[in-house]
């Protein structure tokens, strides 16, 4: 495992007048694979948002690529987000764009010409098995297609870290295995992966494919859930 790319140091986060996370510390080394698990409402999504700067901690510190996230201005935050690919549970697509345009959105907003990236885009669509759906609009896609498209969008800028929030939450077993294989592939390419899931069967299925660590949120605290898989 390489140097830490994301570090959470004694992190606390209050929500709705109560303490959701308390004294949370983790380090995600470069090229590592982590699962984040815990019951619904435990704060998995919140913890992920704190990792990529969408939320500001109440206490403690988040460091990404050796930068204190709290000290970043809005432009620096935009650049940070290009280094962290995020797969949201609800995918967050723009419904007026085609699937291909949605996947290419990180390229578009970073000022790159899609025409120059056409080959890479097609390769990526092929990798997630969506070549024949590239002109479809998001509402026309199935749950599995949406998740794979969200993964493709998250990796199009070849970020160092990929964070996925319940990527298999709305798909069947077969599709969840397919998504897992894609995440493992990315990890083998050297990407740091952090996956929030409440699906323990997914974690068990990953056992034979990757060396992953399992973190569990319970009672506002983060714990290492047993030995490495």
């Amino acid at each position: 495992m390489g140097p830490n790319v994301i570090e959470l140091d004694n992190l606390g986060y209050n929500y709705g007048g109560g303490e959701l996370l308390s004294d949370v510390s983790i380090q995600l080394g470069s090229g590592s694979f982590h699962f984040l698990t815990g019951p619904s409402g435990a704060g998995k999504t919140t913890l992920l948002k704190l990792c990529y700067g969408a939320l500001t901690p109440t206490s403690g510190r988040v460091r990404a690529f050796n930068m204190d996230v709290r000290g970043l201005d809005r432009d620096q935050m935009a650049h940070l987000r290009r280094r962290i690919g995020v797969v949201h549970q609800d995918c967050r697509f723009l419904d007026h764009l085609t699937l291909k345009e949605n996947i290419a959105l990180p390229l578009t907003v970073s000022g790159r010409d899609i025409a120059d990236e056409e080959a890479n885009l097609r390769e990526l669509l092929s990798w997630v098995g969506l070549t024949d759906r590239m002109d479809a609009r998001p509402p026309e896609l199935s749950g599995g297609e949406r998740q794979r498209a969200a993964l493709a969008r998250a990796v199009i800028l070849s970020p160092d870290v990929i964070i996925a929030d319940e990527p298999t939450g709305n798909v069947d077993w077969e599709m969840s295995q397919r998504l897992l294989r894609l995440l493992v592939e990315l990890n083998h390419m050297g990407k740091t992966i952090l996956v929030a899931t409440h699906d323990l069967s997914l974690i068990r299925a990953a056992k034979n494919q990757v060396q992953a660590r399992v973190l569990r949120i319970s009672s506002r605290q983060l714990q290492l859930a047993g030995a490495d898989l």
Binding site: A54, A78, R81, R82, V109, R153, L157
Partner: peptide, 9 residues
Amino acid sequence: VLRLVGAQD
């Protein structure tokens, strides 16, 4: 969404 995928303001 644009911010999440790295768009500057």
